[in-house]
Design a binder for these strands. Structure first.
Lengths: 226, 226
DNA sequence: ACCTGAACACCGTTCAAGT
DNA sequence: ACCTGAACACCGTTCAAGT
């Protein structure tokens, strides 16, 4: 009648020694799914299945989907590389930090969408925000302008990443959009028509446009400060 | 055995002479639901129920949820008021048009979220884009810069509206966020701490911040053009 | 041509019950 | 304390069948 030692082993089935649940494990699994399947892969039920349990088990470690999303976003930002404080001018470091953020979002299609609709107060998001604020501070920007400016810079980088990732995910979203633009009556929408022509003819890549936007925002901030 | 004239009347139940389905009716009903219940109200099944039919009936007029969303977004932008071309300088008109856009998004909480993740090529979205491009054109901005600039301006206005509407919808999202910021260690995040202090102390309303962002973008564009 | 019922394959969240 | 089964109230989309 005593419990046999084999019993435990049998109950673990053919899995690689199932780890006990934890918030870290849940969040890491969620990010993996998000990277593999895009935003459609991020669901309580799919995470639970990947961890070989039921969805209700997750609620011990996570209050709801929104809270989980903010944790996943923060983990997705773990890959951001922040330049050392002596790695060039504050402008250069600001640009490099934002480029690294962009890369981190490119890496995981769904994360960009998450970043657009979720705020994280996790360690990686905070460190990134602190870094950008510090750069602007070094540039002599007041702390109120810096706060608003960092918001604007991050929003811009996030949306560039989202646009790119939604192009990849939904196939030819941008293609369809451009086709619709091309089909418009140039009499009715003359400015759209000519802008569209320029967008087509211009041989500009994504990075050039990204740099343009950051420049615009930065120059605008400095102008208002000076 | 002949069909009785009353039969038709009975089948219409206590409804006000049920309109035949059409894309316009579907989209209008969808927008109503979105305005009443927020983004949670926008679902095929809820729209169908509101129209007293089954969800499959909608697919005759609309390919899928994404297409429907883009139509709903465009209808949501119908309320934008574009200033007459003699209503002040191009900067003033640009600002007024964007303010009107902001108001239209405030009006319907869910529409802002839609605008953040959906592109519309409907008449209202096109007219708005054309108007903004025209303003920048009058300001002497090149058509490539104008195209990118309009994107940036609209993105900014949309995100301001989204931030506001998510505050309303999810109750105290921003409150929670600010509380988390206040609880941070000022040693570890000195710039976040001082920015946060300024954000609290400064008596700035939403409109002031909105204007600041538009100014930054516009000044930045002009600087790069000049 | 238009509409419907019924089904398929999903969701987030709760809660009583088990260990 | 942690985990689970089962249920509740939802999703988008398809498709054979009816009118």
């Amino acid at each position: 009648m005593t419990t046999q030692p084999t019993r435990t082993i049998v109950s673990r089935r053919a899995r690689p020694a199932k780890d006990p649940l934890s918030r870290e494990l849940i969040v890491a699994t969620a990010l993996e799914l998000l990277q593999k399947e895009g935003s459609a892969g991020l669901s309580m039920r799919k995470i639970a299945k990947a961890l070989d349990t039921g969805p209700s088990s997750l609620y011990v470690y996570v209050a709801n989907m929104q809270e989980l999303s903010s944790y996943v976003l923060d983990l997705g930002l773990a890959g951001i590389a922040l330049p050392a404080s002596d790695a060039g001018s504050w402008q250069t470091r600001l640009f490099d930090a934002l480029s690294s953020y962009l890369l981190a979002l490119y890496d995981a299609p769904g994360v960009a969408e998450l970043a657009l609709t979720t705020v994280s107060v996790g360690p990686h998001a905070l460190a990134f925000t602190e870094y950008l604020l510090q750069c602007l501070h070094e540039g002599g920007v007041s702390s109120l302008s810096a706060a608003w400016g960092v918001d604007l810079l991050m929003l811009y980088a996030t949306s560039v990443a989202f646009e790119q990732s939604s192009r990849d995910a939904r196939g030819t979203t941008i293609q369809t959009h451009l086709a619709a633009m091309a089909a418009l009556d140039p009499q009715q929408y003359p400015r759209i028509a000519s802008s569209h022509a320029d967008l087509i003819s211009g041989s500009v890549d994504g990075m050039e446009r990204f740099r343009w936007g950051l420049d615009v925002i930065l120059q605008g901030i400095m102008k208002k400060e000076g």
